[in-house]
Design a protein around this nucleic acid. Structure first.
Lengths: 191, 191
DNA sequence: TGATTCAGAATGAACGTTCATTCCATGTTT
DNA sequence: AAACATGGAATGAACGTTCATTCTGAATCA
């Protein structure tokens, strides 16, 4: 196994185990096992567990961004762009439940809070597209007159909740329900 | 200190520490310290840490319910009832940040997932008022034609997100913004 | 009243376990 | 052969839980 291969295996194993059992249900020894690697080897690639966790978060963000923005065109009507970004994000989560579960774990932990605090301006997912879209919508008075974070809450709050329910098996989403949900979010933010 | 006093102190200390640092940042020894009791004393009142955690959850639920439903009348117009329940819940969270942080921790943990799964199967809903309101709205076609869990997501998702941002200091809510936020949620669920 | 007894509440040091991290003998590459 | 990478046993810190002991205050007795 080549050098970068091992790093990749470690990251993959960490994602699987942490997404399923949380940070504290993911001992380094288990991650090493699942990656097919010695416990000590992890420390050749990551200074410690915290670094592994935040590094994994960064990699997930980078994976998501291009998928979301694929087929996204800034020239389309505002509403269409909103629906595109919402649908793309929700579908990404549904198709990548491990990524979703990991991101949730991260957000609801001291890691995530510190991370967001550092980013106070960048806000959620670090995806600038969302911020730009909402800023434009507020400026053009297409969106309601509330602060940006409220818009984020109105748009992403239901989205995350629905994704979680689907992944945990409490509901089953299909294309129709997804479309209706995103349109409902649009009703929430539009003026 | 009388007998129920100690139990109360333990519960209070556990709420404070867990809300602030999470389940794993709350060793029993620290909870005992904060409560002003010996480490072993906790085990006179709670079989183990898990029982303490779920018991505390149950107590919080019981505390919230009467506050939410105060002044709530089933005869008022549907929209008014929705706004009342939404506003009451959001304001409760803002006024009781420890409660909110604890409930979030609980929901985003194996405890919470297991808890919800039991509820779904057992039909024994904790938030009956909310369930009744939404059921009625769907039946009367005041609400959009989507499954109940989607309505929950549309209504509570933004609410929790906004409460979290406020409590973490990322935004500052006032009565006007709260009212606009709940009304936006109404736009999301209404037909 | 003051002394004595006693049940159960409270205590915290000690225990066994789990975990992140370190260490080093061994293997691999250059 | 030198330099580096690896695995997994060893380490020590932290944790939840236990239990032998101490404390407390109500009940009983003289």
């Amino acid at each position: 196994m080549s050098k970068p291969d091992k790093r990749e295996e470690i990251v993959r194993a960490a994602l699987e185990i942490i997404a399923e059992h949380g940070f504290h249900g993911a001992p380094m020894a288990l991650i090493a096992d699942r990656a097919g690697v010695g416990a000590g080897t992890i420390y050749r690639y990551f200074e410690n567990k915290d670094v592994l966790i935040t590094e994994l978060y960064r990699e997930l963000e980078e994976r998501i961004y291009p998928v979301i923005t694929e087929g996204y065109s800034e020239v389309k009507a505002f509403r269409e762009r909103f629906l595109h970004l919402g649908t793309a994000l929700l579908k990404y989560f549904i198709n990548n439940p491990l990524d979703f579960r990991y991101l949730e774990q991260f957000h609801n932990s001291p890691y995530g809070v510190a991370f967001r605090r550092d980013r106070l301006l960048g806000e959620k997912e670090g995806c600038d597209v969302y911020r730009e879209l909402f800023d434009e919508g507020i400026a053009q008075q297409v969106l309601k007159d509330v602060p940006l974070p409220i818009h984020f809450a109105l748009a992403f709050g239901p989205l995350l909740s629905v994704a979680r329910d689907h992944i945990l098996g409490f509901i089953t989403l299909d294309d129709l329900i997804i479309a209706r949900t995103i349109e409902a979010c649009w009703d929430a933010v539009r003026r």
